[in-house]
């Protein structure tokens, strides 16, 4: 009987293995997020948070979480490293040792980096809530938006601003979490807005770049872009820089005038960072570009995987964490020369 039933059990076994494989393969993956305080790089990559000494490029500590961590960690003034995981937990770690201080649990994934301002952690979650916590991880207030919040918030002294996948831009009181205004835009908001002189600047997933009055939420101007915009812009010397899904890199004035655009190789998901040569931006094709502020490509290098939102600058070092490959962190100098790499030891 056992022999005759073999085909049946084989099918069941294969199905189980296949679906388990699917489940593993379909476990929500993420790309690395990196930040630095100038001496140490903090890297959220896969299911680990790493601290890497920038002088010795040695691993100082690593912290394992149950699921993936996606966004770049943030630091508080009192020495905490705050990082969210796909396990619905927001972790506070000791920046020196990597020991866990506390966790705060939400109902869904932490995708956008939190904002730390004035002793409050403003943490967006995919469960539609923006959470405001004190530095001990106690909830001060929470605000329910219309949809998942993937982008990090920005804030001035009174108000916190953030966008949702549901195309709404919200402004809420930093003190109480009460809604100040909300404005419906044409596309999902995935990135962090830039706030400057009372104006919010943000790119939309439907391919538009928008400026809003931070006081009222009124749309000041809106420019159509060739493709989707994932990340918020970088504001540098009164110019807004960002890329789109077609691989085009743009420079806009704060008044909405296109100053220049440059086609690059591969979709641009992340935001650019300021470097001594001007700007650095990575693409999905694995290219890293150094671009002057007037749009000249100074140099480009290729890394082992796609470069998403995973750039950070420490002095004259540009830190890059590509999506694939065993090298978790590349450090480049001003000339685009690779200075060192960080490959975590196997444990």
């Amino acid at each position: 009987m056992k022999t005759k039933l073999f085909p049946l059990f084989a099918v069941l076994l294969l199905t189980g293995l296949f679906l388990s494989g699917c489940a593993t393969g379909m476990v929500p993956s993420s790309w690395p997020g990196v930040m630095t305080d100038g001496e140490v790089a903090y890297l959220a990559a896969g299911s680990h948070i790493y601290a890497v000494n920038l002088e010795t490029h040695a691993e100082l500590w690593r912290f394992e979480i149950k699921a993936h961590a996606f966004a770049a960690p943030v630091l508080t003034d009192d020495g905490q490293l705050i990082v969210g995981g796909y396990d619905h937990l927001l972790y506070s770690l000791d920046r020196e040792t990597g020991q866990e201080n506390w966790t705060f649990e939400a109902r869904d994934r932490w995708i956008g980096s939190p904002l730390v301002k004035g002793g409050t952690i403003y943490a967006p979650n995919a469960d539609y809530f923006l959470y405001a916590l004190d530095l001990d991880g106690n909830l001060k207030w929470k605000f329910e938006a219309d949809q998942s919040i993937w982008g990090s918030p920005v804030a001035d002294d009174q108000t916190v601003y953030f966008g949702t996948l549901g195309r709404w831009m919200f402004a809420v009181s930093a003190e109480t979490g009460q809604e100040v205004w909300k404005t419906k835009l044409d596309g999902a908001i995935l990135g962090r807005p830039v706030l400057s002189d009372g104006v919010l600047y943000i790119g939309l997933f439907d391919g538009a770049f928008v400026a809003l009055d931070a006081r009222t939420g009124a749309i000041l101007w809106q420019k159509p872009i060739d493709s989707w915009i994932w990340s918020g812009p970088l504001l540098l010397q009164d110019t807004l820089f960002f890329g789109d899904g077609s691989g085009k890199f743009y420079a806009y004035s704060k008044e909405g005038e296109l100053l220049w655009s440059k086609p690059l190789n591969g979709a641009i998901v992340g935001a650019p960072v300021a470097v001594p040569a001007g700007l650095a931006i990575g693409t999905e094709a694995g290219n890293l570009y150094f671009i002057s502020l007037d749009g000249e490509i100074v140099r480009s290098v290729v890394v082992s995987g796609a470069v998403y939102d995973s750039l950070a600058v420490a002095g004259n070092l540009l830190l890059v964490s590509p999506d694939k490959g065993e090298t978790l962190l590349y450090a480049f100098d001003d000339n685009g020369a690779q200075v060192w790499t960080f490959i975590p030891s196997k444990r």
Binding site: L19, R109, W150
Partner: peptide
Amino acid sequence: MFALYQSVVRALASTPAQ
């Protein structure tokens, strides 16, 4: 079923990577 499972997860795109 195999393909549908992957399709559902893919189509719902609940993370940036997805």
